[in-house]
Nucleic acid binder design. Structure first.
Lengths: 226, 226
DNA sequence: AAACAGAATTACAGAAATGTCATGAACCGT
DNA sequence: ACGGTTCATGACATTTCTGTAATTCTGTTT
């Protein structure tokens, strides 16, 4: 699992960092709230360990900012403040757990893994796909480009879904035949070409940024990049 | 929110029960693990408070049983055992949090609400619907009756989904026209009847238990019950 | 630049899905 | 039991979707 530790006390930070690493996890560690917030917002961690008192941006402010930006990364708050009021305040401000210093590393590890695991367990198979301004809602079966709804036929939808599930990667013609048409042989026709063409006319036509790219001799790719 | 408290010490149980009620929550409380496990498995709570030491079935066993039956109700474990090892053991065995007695009620409340809230937040829109032996996978767009795959046309699928989303409740004709056909007026035809008929021939025909029921003068209902 | 292969596009035809209508059955009050 | 209403179903018409094939376009190689 991948964790971020935000703690200004060098000794504690190294202690936690080392312990988590030894338990087989990936750890990033920073010593101030500003860097912590930046990393937490841009990288993809399973959980955070955040000290309450921090230079530049304190732990509570950091969590508030994160929650405001709709992130629900589990966070464990560390603090020397052992008052019940402080603990309640920490929990109320977006922390999922609160541990008072000094703490036993074993307990930190157990709590952190519980937080991270529970979240992953509940996490449902993603039902929304995105590439630039192209959004796909698999449950509602709706596709939007730049917030304008696009109507796709079933085949077109399946084709686009296959491309989106493999964003940034080439999807070969063989793969498409298997996944979208359920053909396990080469039908010797140009079905794919035709449907790609139709899909493009709905998705890319008239836009200054094309998303569906041809990979000559291989297949197709949908991509963020130009 | 709705909580279950499993605690054999009368004083503690009443204290927690009263506090949670006063905080505006719904509380059930029992004094032994057997009743606790039964309620937790059959009722639908937002979170559990479970004491470690309990008559008949202890807290850890209770949680293990629950987790084994694929429940992920958040649980907070209470215990007089304050050793780090005990705390780690509690967390490892399926508790989402661990609080040492004596505790401040404020902290219990804060922790419990955090657990329950986080879960609800993350909970994704359900992508599987079920009614008896009829299963519907909204993401894969597949329907099974008694583990046999049924092929549905898009309209039929939408119609069945609408019924399943409102299992046990009557779905009126007007609702169906709005949800399935996106008509906001009465088309003065019998489209619904025709599609219900086709759906029935695929879903109910030849089965000894019909699931789609007519509610004369109102609409249709899909139901577990006979 | 010519020749070629892969890909794009268009038009068309067959298949599938959807809706309309007509007929008959089931239900409900009198 | 009768008549009216509501619902079920089968046949048919229409629309939509999908695949084929012919033609044009594009990039690559010689």
């Amino acid at each position: 699992m991948r964790f971020l530790v935000v703690e200004d006390d060098d000794q504690v930070r190294r202690y936690v960092e080392k312990g988590l690493s030894e338990a087989g996890h990936n750890v990033d560690a920073v010593d101030n709230g500003k860097d912590g917030l930046f990393l937490a917002a841009t990288e993809n961690y399973d959980a955070l360990v955040v000290d309450w008192m921090l230079p530049t941006v304190d732990g509570i402010t950091l969590l508030n900012a994160l929650r405001a930006s709709d992130s629900n990364i589990p966070a464990l708050m560390l603090s020397a403040r052992s008052d019940v009021d402080d603990r309640v305040r920490g929990l109320r401000s977006g922390a999922d757990d609160y541990l008072v210093k000094p703490f036993a590393f074993e307990e930190l590890l157990a709590r952190l893994e519980v937080l991270a695991l529970r979240r992953n367990q509940v996490e449902a198979p993603t039902s929304n796909l995105q590439c630039r301004d192209l959004h796909m809602d698999l449950l509602k079966r709706q596709v939007y480009r730049a917030n304008v709804r696009i109507d796709l036929n079933p085949r077109e939808f399946a084709l686009l879904e296959c491309l989106m599930q493999n964003k940034e990667q080439v999807v070969t013609r063989t793969m498409l035949l298997e996944k979208v048409w359920n053909y396990h042989f080469d039908p010797q026709t140009n079905v794919i070409d035709v449907h790609i063409s139709r899909l493009r006319s709905k998705v890319d036509k008239g836009k200054d940024q094309s998303l569906i790219h041809t990979v000559r001799g291989a297949g197709y790719k949908i991509s963020d990049a130009a």
